[in-house]
Design a binder for these strands. Sequence first.
DNA 1: AACACGGGGAT
DNA 2: ATCCCAGTGTT
Length: 353
Amino acid sequence: MLALTDFSARLIAWQRIHGRHDLPWQNTRDAYRIWLSEIMLQQTQVSTVIPYYARFLERFPTVTTLADAPIDDVMALWAGLGYYSRARNLHRCAQVVAHEHGGAFPETVDALAELPGIGRSTAAAIASFAFGARATILDGNVKRVLARVFGVDGFPGEKRVENAMWTLAESLLPDAAEKEDVTAYTQGLMDLGATLCVRGKPDCARCPFAPDCVANVEGRQRELPAARPKKAVPTRNTWMLVLKDGDSILLEKRPPTGIWGGLWSLPEAPDEATLVAVAQNFGGEAHLERLAPLSHTFTHFKLQIEPRLGQASGAPAQAMDAATVWAPLSRIDSFGVPAPVRKLLDALTGSLI
DNA sequence: AACACGGGGAT
DNA sequence: ATCCCAGTGTT
């Protein structure tokens, strides 16, 4: 193993001068704001999060206002960020904190990690940023930094490799650190990975670990960390119904789990004939107009969407319930609608005017 | 241990 | 088009 005895000291010194200090969720010890940012930043880049974070704080300034809000309001503000189970867990977590912890987040990693949506790494981030706890994060940035600096081989998503990285990360923590040092250290891990030790072209010339870094010394920046093993992504096909009644569109609430869980979307069918039956159930005419197909790629599969436009004329054969709503096109934003469906409806709004 | 879960940015 | 991102929860 690399003889690097001053990893934390070097990282802290670098962070204070060259790290990021003005992100919207920095310069606060408010656990609510830190927690909110950490959840939004799971698998999501900083630039994407910033506008969502501002809107969320404006609408929900405290954990209690979030806890007492309807879940549909939370989903609507989250729509477009992806990984919607995060939003459901966010709401559940706020309710637990507000009603079982008196509105204050617990201060230990273990207690934080018991809350919905908070795992080991996020618990450590909150504990270190909000409470100055000596705990290590292990996110994508840290895995990349460790893999390169210490020459850790193997795909970090593999259990054996990840376990080794947790152990390594724990061993690198500054000992008996001040709270300010802990903050600078945790932020430094993130900043180094986000600004210098990036995936594509790492800026090794500016890196404080360049002389010791295995990847830099051996010219293996491109090989470390090892890439995820390739896997073929399947294609799924679906037909979506845009059923119009005046200026309103029929939306259906998706089940809480699975793709777009808890969001409002268009009624779907596995083929066109079934979609016609669905339309008629909701009082639609038998003739459906073909709209331009669209394709949406997820991490693990590709979705081909065949949209069809129908007009509502008769009375619905199927009773409307809590999972069905006529949404005015002008107020689609107040519903949580998945990004591709939102795009489809936006294009439709433009062409129908 | 492996998989499900989104959308957007970077290349 | 492909990879990956301030990961967590379920199976």
